[in-house]
Amino acid sequence: MVVEVEISSLSTAGSPRTSGADPEHVETLAEVQTPLPPITVHRSTMRVIDGLHRVRAAELRGERKIAARFFEGDEADAFVLAVESNVTHGLPLTTADRKRAAGRIIASHPQWSDRMIASVTGIAPGTVAEIRRRRPGGRVGEVSRIGQDGRVRPVNGTEGRRLASRLIAQDPSLSLRQVARAASISPETVRDVRNRMMRGEDPLPGPRRGNRKQANGTEVPAAGRGGLRPAAVACRNPVQDRAAVLDRLRADPALRFSETGRTLLRLLTVHMMSPEEWDAIIEKVPPHCGGVVARLAGECAEMWAEFAQRVERKVAETA
């Protein structure tokens, strides 16, 4: 929704454009007779996300108010939107500003892949990777990242394969997608791991095999390992797995910045309950309406199952 805001209430601090407004561009906009597009403002801080030059042009024309749209997210996402907006249209950010912005986004959204940050900042993925490497801590502790397509992928595919092999050894009945979600790898990679295990092979392709540490800290050479080996570690809590995936989805701008995306996140959040919490709800269902509740729950489950199938088909068609 577009509203009129007092220019005096706006803040231009924290802009990715470190050199400030370009005077020549401001004068050019001030001479435009037709209405300029609304600016974008972060509601909680009243910072200008997109439209610094339009604000300065309005001031130059002596105007006290300007048309604006409000952004409701947090400050980190507001900065991401500011960078993306000033890369795709208007007076582009300088290369130096884009690199500085990439460093800031790496700090605020470390789970984003190099390609995803590159798509926002307008620099090459290799440049983003180099900026990430130069930051204190570098890639330490990273397990997976969210790609430009919204999919979660492991930083180290080797660890994902190893986790998948342990999960399969513990519970062979798990589906490819269940293992893929827990190990943050693709279902096809899980399929390859499972096939290797069935043939008695190492779950890692030859070049990626390395020494593996046992529980006592000693290393077992790859050549000395057999095929199937029972896992010595417990499987992760599935509720924690789902919560971790949901946290990554909440960080995805494609979902955060749209009403439909936020609706989907709210629906998924409803189901982030432990078995104990579900048991407590079941205990409180009145007997006289238990049948109706069970039928509605079943219908909801069927709708979610159909939703999952349709989303999977869409992913397969666009892959």
Results as ranks from 00 to 15, higher is better:
33 Q>N: 07
33 Q>E: 10
34 T>D: 06
34 T>I: 00
35 P>G: 13
36 L>N: 13
37 P>G: 09
38 P>G: 07
38 P>D: 08
39 I>D: 00
40 T>F: 03
41 V>G: 05
42 H>G: 09
42 H>A: 13
43 R>I: 04
43 R>E: 08
45 T>C: 00
46 M>E: 01
47 R>W: 06
48 V>G: 02
48 V>N: 03
48 V>K: 05
49 I>N: 06
49 I>P: 05
50 D>S: 00
51 G>I: 13
52 L>M: 10
53 H>P: 11
53 H>F: 11
53 H>T: 10
57 A>E: 14
57 A>V: 15
58 A>I: 03
58 A>G: 04
58 A>D: 05
59 E>N: 09
59 E>L: 15
62 G>W: 02
63 E>D: 07
63 E>L: 06
64 R>D: 04
64 R>P: 00
65 K>W: 09
65 K>A: 09
65 K>F: 12
66 I>K: 01
66 I>M: 07
66 I>S: 04
67 A>W: 08
68 A>I: 06
68 A>K: 04
68 A>L: 08
69 R>Q: 15
69 R>P: 02
69 R>S: 12
70 F>G: 11
70 F>A: 12
70 F>P: 11
71 F>Q: 11
71 F>D: 15
71 F>W: 15
71 F>M: 11
74 D>M: 06
75 E>Q: 12
75 E>D: 14
78 A>Q: 06
78 A>H: 05
78 A>G: 10
81 L>H: 10
81 L>F: 07
82 A>V: 05
83 V>M: 09
85 S>F: 03
85 S>L: 01
85 S>Y: 03
86 N>V: 00
86 N>R: 07
87 V>W: 14
88 T>Y: 08
89 H>W: 09
90 G>S: 10
90 G>T: 09
91 L>R: 15
93 L>T: 09
95 T>M: 12
95 T>F: 10
96 A>R: 15
97 D>M: 13
98 R>N: 05
99 K>Y: 09
99 K>L: 13
100 R>C: 06
100 R>F: 05
103 G>T: 04
104 R>L: 02
104 R>P: 00
107 A>V: 07
107 A>D: 10
107 A>E: 14
108 S>H: 11
108 S>M: 07
108 S>G: 10
109 H>A: 04
111 Q>A: 11
112 W>E: 12
112 W>G: 11
112 W>I: 15
113 S>V: 03
115 R>D: 13
115 R>P: 04
115 R>Y: 04
116 M>K: 12
116 M>N: 06
116 M>S: 06
116 M>D: 03
116 M>Y: 08
117 I>D: 00
117 I>C: 01
117 I>E: 01
120 V>W: 15
120 V>L: 13
120 V>T: 14
121 T>H: 07
123 I>D: 09
124 A>M: 14
124 A>Y: 14
125 P>H: 07
125 P>V: 05
126 G>L: 08
127 T>D: 01
128 V>L: 04
128 V>P: 04
129 A>K: 13
129 A>G: 14
130 E>V: 08
131 I>G: 03
131 I>K: 06
132 R>V: 02
132 R>E: 02
134 R>K: 05
136 P>W: 01
136 P>A: 04
137 G>H: 09
137 G>K: 10
138 G>K: 00
140 V>E: 04
143 V>G: 00
145 R>M: 01
145 R>A: 01
147 G>E: 07
147 G>L: 03
147 G>C: 02
148 Q>S: 15
148 Q>E: 15
150 G>K: 11
151 R>Y: 02
153 R>P: 00
